[in-house]
Amino acid sequence: MTRGDRPSRVSQRELEPRVSPGRRALLLAAVLTGVLLLAIQLWLLTIALDLFLGGHGGEIWGLAAISGLIFAGGLGTFVLLRRNSAPRR
């Protein structure tokens, strides 16, 4: 947005599709779980770096496997949601 523009008076509620309260809570829980899993991956990366600098590089594989599982789960969810929301013929 450039300086001086007037924002349109459209509220966030109007922009979002209508979502039932129960579904909203479910979506919020899913988003928070995703953020938590990302934080865990970041934590695993710091441990891996610590092990690498400490000369215990061979012990990193377990951490990489856990991180890979989280990534695979996220990718699977993404693909599944794309497939489910694709227009049906």
């Binding site: 770096l49 690498f52 590089g57 594989w61 990489a64 991180s67 890979g68 990534f71």
Partner: peptide, 9 residues
């Protein structure tokens, strides 16, 4: 993040 961890491994 997974790629970084794997690279360190």
């Amino acid at each position: 993040l997974f790629g970084g961890t794997l690279l360190l491994g």
